[in-house]
Amino acid sequence: MIYFINQLIVFDSGDRTLAWQARENEAVSLSIPVSRLFETLITNPGTLLSRELLMREALEKHALSPSINNLNNYVSLLRKVLREFDLDDAIVTVPKSGIIFNISDVNVIENNRKDKELTGVAEAGKATCSTAISLASSVQREKRKRYFFAGE
């Protein structure tokens, strides 16, 4: 899925990238656990999510080690990335309760719509699936990617 945040930022959960809408070629890549954590938060904006729920949904379901320390590291890495996108206060920790994603302007866009935008074709019916896929993969190769790991 592709999410537009505050009408300025694009999060592509399939590619695990975060970018300014006007500069998608300068996308920041997220590690798998950070991306899953972010997607869990972004699909529940304004909702208090317990640490146990976040560990279960973002880590345990994907065979990652679900511990409070790991979750705290991933939240810290996510905050670090979000600062680059002027979303310093997007993640609010409520002591002894959980975490809230404090952004209400989140729009979900279908993957096929993104592919059609990449082809630059105005009419949806003119783009073929293979053209959209090959163009999307060539755009991905051109993206400058930075990786964030738990050790940083």
Rank of each mutant, 00 (worst) to 15 (best):
Y3K: 03
F4S: 00
F4V: 15
I5L: 14
N6C: 12
N6G: 00
Q7F: 09
L8K: 10
F11I: 05
F11H: 04
F11K: 04
D12I: 07
G14L: 10
G14C: 12
R16V: 10
T17M: 02
Q21H: 08
Q21K: 10
Q21C: 02
Q21P: 00
Q21E: 12
A22G: 02
A22R: 06
A22Y: 07
R23V: 04
N25M: 15
E26N: 08
A27M: 10
V28N: 06
V28D: 03
L30H: 02
L30W: 04
L30K: 02
S31W: 01
S31C: 13
P33Y: 00
P33N: 08
V34I: 02
S35I: 03
L37N: 01
F38P: 00
E39P: 00
T40G: 10
L41I: 03
L41P: 00
I42A: 00
P45T: 03
G46Q: 11
T47A: 09
L48R: 05
S50P: 03
R51Q: 09
E52L: 14
E52Y: 09
L54W: 05
R56L: 11
R56G: 08
A58Q: 12
A58H: 03
E60K: 09
E60M: 06
E60H: 11
K61E: 11
H62D: 09
A63E: 10
A63T: 09
L64Q: 02
S65W: 03
S65Q: 03
P66T: 08
P66M: 08
S67L: 09
S67A: 07
I68D: 06
N69A: 13
N72Y: 06
N72H: 09
N73V: 07
N73Q: 14
N73L: 10
Y74M: 10
L77F: 05
L78V: 03
R79G: 13
K80H: 06
K80P: 00
V81N: 05
R83I: 07
R83Q: 11
R83Y: 14
R83H: 14
F85S: 02
D86M: 14
D86T: 04
L87T: 00
L87P: 01
I91N: 01
I91M: 04
V94D: 01
K96W: 02
K96F: 12
G98T: 08
G98M: 08
I100L: 05
F101Q: 01
N102Y: 03
N102V: 13
I103P: 01
S104F: 02
D105N: 14
N107C: 07
N107S: 15
N107G: 11
V108S: 12
V108Y: 06
N111K: 12
N111S: 14
N111Q: 14
R113T: 11
R113M: 12
K114V: 03
K116V: 10
L118P: 00
T119L: 13
T119S: 09
T119V: 12
V121K: 10
V121F: 12
G125D: 09
A127V: 13
T128K: 15
S130F: 08
T131F: 08
A132V: 14
A132I: 02
A132Y: 07
S134P: 04
S134Q: 13
S137A: 11
S137M: 15
S137Q: 15
S138E: 15
V139E: 07
K143H: 13
R144G: 10
K145A: 06
K145E: 06
R146I: 04
Y147L: 15
F149V: 11
F149Q: 07
G151N: 05
